Amino acid sequence: MVQIKTPEQIAKMREAGLVVAAIHAATREAAVPGATTRDLDEIARKVIADHGAKSNFLGYGGFPATICTSVNEVVVHGIPDGKTVLKDGDVISIDCGAIIDGWHGDAAYTAFVGTGHSQELLELSRVTEESMWAGIAAMRNGARLVDVSRAIETYIRRQPRPATGKYGIIEDYGGHGIGTEMHMDPHLLNYVSRKRGRGPKIVPGFCLAIEPMVSLGTPHTEVLADDWTVVTTDGTWSAHWEHSVALTEEGPLVLTAPDGGRAKLAELGITAAPDPAASA
C-alpha cells in the first residue's frame, strides 16, 4: 500500500528534510583528507541533536551509526569507524536521514576528498546526480512509477561511455516510498524491469526517495562480513545520489534540498511547489 500524505504531513516531512540538508552541509565541509568516517558521524549526530530531531539510521535493523559512509568501491551502507581515514583522491557517498514528529527525511550525496580526481570520476558523480533529477522531473501527476525508473535509466544510458566501457546501474538496491517510515512501498528500481510492470500511479501526496547508484563497471554487488557494507563485485568505484520528493497539487517539492529543488527544477522547465518552510 502506498501512503498518500496531506499537505500538513508533507510540511512536517519538509522539516525533517531540512535537517537532512543541514547534515549534508556539515559533513560535506568536514570530508577532508585526514578525517575519519567516525568524525563525520559525530558531526551528523550533533546536527540532529541541535535540531531536536531523531536519527532514522541509528539502530535501524541494528545499524550502529547515524550516517552511512561509503568510500570508493563501497556502494552503500558503509559503517563509520575510527580506522577509515579519508585520503586525498577518495570518493565518499554519505547517506543519512532524520525524523521530526514521526515523519522521515532521507537523502545522499557523493563528495570528492581533496583534489586531483580524474574526469572519469567527476563525470560518474555528475551522471548519477543528473539521473536522479531526471527521475524527479518524471514524478508528475498521473505518471506511473516505471516512468521514474525509465527516466533515470534513459539519462544514464544516453551519456558517453566511460573508459571502463559502461556505467553499471546497481541492480540490488533502489529508491523507496517514505513517510511515517524510512522505507515504505513502493520499491523504485533505477532501471525498467518488465517483471515489475508499470507500478502504481503517481498522484498528489505521493512521496518517494529517489536514489540512483551507479558504478564505473558492474551492476552487481556483494555484502561484506559485517552484513551491511555493500561493494561492487569488480572493485570499481561508485556514486550515490538521493533526494526525498513529494508531489503536491502544485508540483514537486524536493523535501531534502535547501531550496526545495526550485533552482534545479527551473533548469528542467518545471515549477517547484511552494515551500511550506518559507512561510513557517
Rank of each mutant, 00 (worst) to 15 (best):
C96Y: 07
T236Q: 14
A31R: 08
E171Y: 06
F206C: 03
V71Y: 00
A209M: 10
T84P: 01
V32G: 02
V214M: 14
G205P: 14
V91N: 02
T233Y: 13
A134D: 09
R14T: 11
S238P: 05
T236R: 08
A277H: 08
Y60A: 01
Q9V: 05
S149K: 09
V148E: 13
V230M: 10
T128W: 04
Q3W: 09
S193L: 11
H183R: 10
Q159S: 07
A44T: 12
L224K: 15
L216P: 06
P219C: 03
M213L: 10
A277I: 12
R158M: 10
P64N: 12
G261S: 04
R158P: 05
R198K: 14
R126D: 09
V74D: 05
H104N: 15
V85T: 14
Q3E: 15
R157H: 10
G78N: 07
V71G: 11
G205D: 06
H51I: 10
P162W: 04
A143H: 11
E123S: 14
V223F: 06
A272S: 15
L268W: 13
V230S: 03
T256N: 03
V74G: 08
A98M: 06
T66N: 11
G217Q: 05
G269F: 01
V113D: 08
V74K: 07
A277F: 09
L18G: 10
R198V: 13
T218G: 11
T180R: 13
A225I: 13
G59N: 15
S93E: 02
V214C: 12
P162R: 03
A134T: 02
E211F: 04
G197T: 06
V74L: 08
R262C: 02
E130D: 13
T232K: 01
A111S: 11
P258H: 04
A225E: 15
I10A: 08
T128K: 07
T248L: 01
A44R: 00
Y173M: 11
G62L: 04
A246Q: 06
E249P: 12
E123K: 14
L247S: 04
K12F: 08
H24T: 09
A273F: 10
D39A: 12
P186Q: 05
K264G: 12
W237F: 13
V254H: 00
T229H: 09
G179V: 08
P258W: 07
P276I: 00
I136T: 02
K166P: 02
H117Q: 15
H77M: 06
M13R: 00
E242R: 05
V231I: 14
A53L: 05
V2S: 13
I210F: 00
R198Q: 09
Y155M: 10
G61F: 00
G116C: 08
A209R: 13
E8C: 04
I202C: 07
N72K: 07
P162C: 04
E250G: 09
E153A: 13
E129K: 10
L253R: 05
G59R: 03
T115G: 11
L122P: 07
I170E: 14
A272I: 06
T154H: 11
L255D: 00
